[in-house]
Computed example of a mutant assay.
Amino acid sequence: MNLLVIAPHQDDEILSAFLLMHNVLEKNGTVNILYATNGDYRGIDYAYTRYYESLNALSLLGICEDHMLYLGYADTGMSKEKSFLMRLRSTPEQQNSPVSSCTYHPANKETVHSLHTETQAEYTSQNFLDDLVYAIRSCSPSLIAAPSIFDLHGDHYACAMYLYDALRIINHPIKVLSYLIHTENEDVWPNRKSDIFQPPKNLTTFHWIYVYGNKEAVSAKRNAISAFSSQSPSADNCFLYSFAKQNELFLLESIQ
């Protein structure tokens, strides 16, 4: 199996799909992670820190930086009103962030755009879509794990919508599992008192896929979450640590 995990920000890949990645690697599959943004809403130095936090977290799975792909777009906030990717998606015009007006890699490596054009991309909706299509075609995944359209973070929702657009362009069947990070009530979901993930109450009628990990993998996931010190894993009633459960939840998407 060839798995591509699409992460809007650095830590989403670990929170959503650590056990899935572990299981794929255990079966000698391949895993690549595609980061949509640099997570730079606090500046370039913050993006640099987050890059190496992800690198250190992924090292617990034996994944090296060659498998970390960067689109290199901006991050300006969580709400749909502040989200950079939502703003990008709403207009064909070039957008700027306080940090940059074009793609960049926080550790001065290649972005997806510079890999196929040898230049950086202006922040436009068409460039983002083109880069996403190129990345998917380059990785040739048999399975994609990506954000859900039910996620309330603007960047997550926009990534889901861009993925729908990209797969229609590619027009090749690829199985998609969508994951959920941000809901209406993060104080109670994920359940802090249970070691098993259950869907949010407003989404229980959907068919969820449960991916389980062994005790060692679950412990490794918690250690991986600890790598993201910039995100304060114990904050908000241990919101990040609440994702270190015996299973992970996904919705099987049907994209026409």
Rank of each mutant, 00 (worst) to 15 (best):
I6V: 15
A7Y: 00
A7D: 03
A7N: 04
A7T: 04
D11A: 01
S16L: 09
S16T: 12
A17T: 02
L20E: 00
H22R: 13
N23C: 12
V24T: 06
E26R: 12
K27S: 14
G29T: 06
T30R: 07
N32T: 15
I44D: 15
I44P: 12
D45H: 13
Y46D: 12
Y51K: 07
Y52D: 06
L55N: 11
L58E: 00
L60M: 09
L61P: 02
G62D: 07
C64K: 15
E65T: 09
H67F: 09
L69Q: 01
D75N: 08
M78H: 13
K80P: 06
K82F: 03
L85G: 01
L85Q: 02
M86G: 04
R87S: 07
S90K: 12
P92M: 07
E93F: 12
Q95E: 13
S100F: 05
S101R: 10
T103L: 02
Y104K: 07
H105P: 02
V112K: 05
H113W: 14
H113R: 11
L115T: 14
H116I: 07
A121S: 13
E122H: 09
Y123A: 00
Q126T: 10
L129G: 09
D130S: 13
V133R: 14
Y134R: 11
A135M: 14
S140E: 15
P141N: 09
P141R: 05
A145T: 09
A146F: 04
A146S: 15
P147C: 13
F150Y: 15
F150D: 05
G154C: 07
H156P: 00
M161N: 08
Y164C: 09
A166W: 05
L167V: 07
I169T: 11
I170S: 08
H172P: 04
H172V: 10
V176R: 02
E184T: 11
E186T: 09
E186Y: 06
W189L: 05
P190I: 10
R192K: 07
R192V: 11
K193E: 11
F197H: 15
Q198L: 11
P199F: 08
N202S: 15
L203V: 09
T205N: 14
W208S: 06
W208V: 06
I209G: 03
Y210A: 05
V211A: 04
G213E: 02
N214D: 13
E216N: 12
E216H: 08
S219E: 14
A220I: 01
K221E: 00
N223L: 14
N223K: 15
N223E: 14
A224T: 06
I225Y: 03
I225Q: 03
I225F: 05
I225N: 02
S230A: 08
S230R: 04
S232T: 13
S232Y: 15
P233V: 09
C238N: 12
F239N: 04
Y241M: 08
F243P: 00
F243V: 01
K245D: 00
E248Q: 07
F250K: 06
E253N: 14
S254Y: 08
